[in-house]
Nucleic acid binder design. Structure first.
Lengths: 122, 122
DNA sequence: GTACAAATGATAAACACTTATCATTAAATT
DNA sequence: AATTTAATGATAAGTGTTTATCATTTGTAC
């Protein structure tokens, strides 16, 4: 039987309110507002389950630990701040991008990551 | 004093002949043709030095270990095969890409990775 | 309220990659 | 050829993230 715990609610709420991809440690920090004892193991467990359930999806940024974001967001890409290391959503996507592949290469998907400075760090 | 060893020559030759980004383990495998006893520690040591010397640069693909490629290659991006997990160069780059960032975000650089199936795996 | 078992939290273990150690090998100089 | 010492190879140790363990807590059903 599946239980609805305070910690699990806190984790979902953090994602709903964050609006950007989060690493597990960020979820712990953000979640303590709603569940003071929230531990890292619980975050890993619930994030894994939420991905399996299709509520979260993974966001992999080169060189960084895996981040997670709401699966309901439509196709988009990300901006990573070199100062605070937070990731943000970027909307829009160049049409022609998949056609950059050389002949004979079949493209299934793509990732774009912009790097720079976010407004808070400018 | 700096020495020019058989292993170091083998490592450079692998990159010159490969034409694509390589993970350290691929360098070991490819380098054994030219230096039969080539070990992984030597590859890590030399790759690190070749990056410091500006002869190689790093290529980071989400979720993968760091790859290395010739620093002399002009701006380009990469294709990663989901079957064989090898990375390939992709030339061309959409102009407008940096302008996708929302107002207030300063873009310094970007990465594009295409995923799919390479000709050898199709 | 009790009973039951899922979930949690603290932490140890696992895991994958990278770096350090050190005895041995082999470039470079004489 | 002998000398010097940088570089190598095998492997232990380190690093950062993720998963497993297990005693304890706490939802849920009765």
């Amino acid at each position: 039987m599946q239980r609805e715990t305070k910690q699990r609610r806190a984790i979902r709420r953090v994602f709903l309110e964050s609006g950007r991809p989060l690493v597990p440690e960020e979820v712990v920090e953000g979640g303590k507002r709603f569940a003071a004892t929230l531990g890292i193991a619980t975050v890993y467990r619930n994030v894994k389950r939420l991905v399996e359930e299709g509520w979260l999806k993974t966001v992999e940024i080169p060189g960084d630990p895996v981040r997670y974001e709401l699966a309901s967001h439509p196709h988009h890409h990300h901006f990573v701040c070199r100062d605070c290391e937070r990731a943000f959503d970027v909307h829009g996507c160049p049409q022609e991008i998949d056609s950059l592949a050389p002949d004979g290469f079949q493209v299934e998907s793509h990732e774009i990551v912009l790097y720079g400075t976010c407004p808070a760090c400018c």
